[in-house]
Design a protein around this nucleic acid. Structure first.
Lengths: 117, 117
DNA sequence: CCCGTACTACGACGGCTATCGTACGAGTCC
DNA sequence: GGACTCGTACGATAGCCGTCGTAGTACGGG
């Protein structure tokens, strides 16, 4: 058809220079997204979206992953039907040294406090 | 009078245990508030609200300071007509070691990038 | 006592956003 | 081709939030 058939199989990511601290913090200020990032960091490898057991529906999950991608926190690539997610650790460390690690430690501590409750 | 005379001169703060990472990150995800925290860290001493030159009205300023206080990021005490603000560095460092420093460095780097733009 | 300064309280408004359901497209496997 | 899985797009909804203006309170000084 006349309709341009733009294969939406490639996803837009911000370049390293386009990553903004405000956006990163906003992305991480949601409990669901913080949890995603924590699990991703523990995995040390790219995970498909469906590998996460989140307390929201699939629609909402898609939304959260997009927020993380558009803020530059994660990288997403299609692999067959699955979409693999990986932390953009290099970029984040280069831009904001120590921040990601501190955030991950903080998230772990908060989770521990919550468990003890 | 019969009216309980609750001197509103003392402000409610969360205890250290009540400080939540989600709330802290949310508080810091606003550019205005991040800027307040940066200036506060540079000052190394308590500052009155009016010491800040922010691009919002006084009403909004009050709002932002309240968010920071209620999330546990800053401490506020009245001193005459002024309200002095200080970072809760000890509490934050105890709860989330390294986080505040990493955030301050990140904020400084982001500001530098913005200036070069 | 009156005024000025510092900050607050309240209400309003517009915009963002987390959530969902449903309908759909892209790949894989039989 | 047909069915199944993974993920998307779109619309709707409800709640939160940043912003403001105005009116008001608390404190200190003349």
């Amino acid at each position: 058809m006349t309709t341009a058939p733009p294969s939406p199989r490639v996803l837009p990511h911000p370049t390293r220079d386009e990553i903004r601290l405000d956006s990163v913090l906003h992305a991480l200020s949601d409990p669901v997204r913080l949890r995603i990032v924590s699990e991703l960091a523990d995995a040390e490898a790219a995970l498909s979206c469906s590998r996460f057991d989140l307390p929201v529906t699939k629609s909402t999950t898609t939304h959260h992953f997009r927020v993380l991608r558009e803020s530059g926190v994660i990288q997403q690539v299609y692999e067959g039907t699955a979409k693999m997610n990986g932390l953009r650790r290099e970029d984040l460390d280069a831009l904001f040294p120590g921040l990601l690690d501190a955030l991950l430690v903080a998230a772990r501590r908060q989770a521990a406090r919550d468990a003890h409750a």
